[in-house]
Amino acid sequence: MNAVETKQLSKAYGVHQVVNGMDLTVKKGEIFGFLGRNGAGKSTFINMLTGIISPSSGTYSLLGIEAPGSEVMKRVGVMPDYSSFYGSWTAMEHLRFFSALSGSRASKEKCLEVLRSVDLLSHGNKKTGKFSFGMKKKLGIAQAIIHDPELVFLDEPTSGMDAESAILIHRLIRQLQEQGKTIFMTSHNLDEVEKICTRIAIMRDGVIDKIGTMEELRAFYRSTMTVKMKHSSVPKHEQTRLKQWLESAGTLLEHEDAYTVITISNEKKIAEMIRAFTQCKADVLRVDVEEPSLEEIFLDE
């Protein structure tokens, strides 16, 4: 059973098509990362799946149930992109109210446990009107998981948080996955997505531009890797032969006396390259292989 499945899901405001016929499947137990520039349609897509807005066309299912109603939503946790709370209520009051609304009526112990998991234990009885932006984000995550949901939507969970808190949230997200929950998250932090997500989709202009695991994306994006080699000087009479070989192996970016940078398409070529240098009487001193980062993939038009 898939945790999320959409078929031709679209949202238009007048003539402006924000989400354009999205087909997406998220399997149970995944940490699915959703990337895109501002205005790409990420939040609109999540808002459709969570019932905040209704789609213009298309269908979707959550936890295997088509057109999910409030009963399914009780098994889903949502942290919307902009979290605003009742300023005169404490964090504890929020958690108790939201859990009751989800039909689970969390005990005081459960509320405290969830507050501890987001590092808000000492602020449980403070009114949220006095909370900082980062604390509100944490409470947003706490309310999304208070009723022990099977599927959790987190819209930019760590934006505005300090590094220490962000690491804590990453750990929490991994723990949720270990408990068998599915996480669907958006983020602008590419490092974060690269580190914790098991699968990633990049959205551009209302459609999914790229999707896959980090490895698949790298392969999809550019079937090349950059190899930087430090080597001893190549004897003059071997230089032409080596250069010809390197040019046939990949794209030669830099080729100096003791330093060569080349992009190649196949990992096996590295070993062949080392052999070619040896045959041309040069010793390879160091090899660095750079694969495309998520940032490069993300920025690639």
Binding site: I52, G69, M73, V78, P80, L101
Partner: peptide, 16 residues
Amino acid sequence: HERTMRFLVTRASRSA
């Protein structure tokens, strides 16, 4: 207006 409704609509039906 204050977007607290987002927490409600993701848990209960609008009629409720």
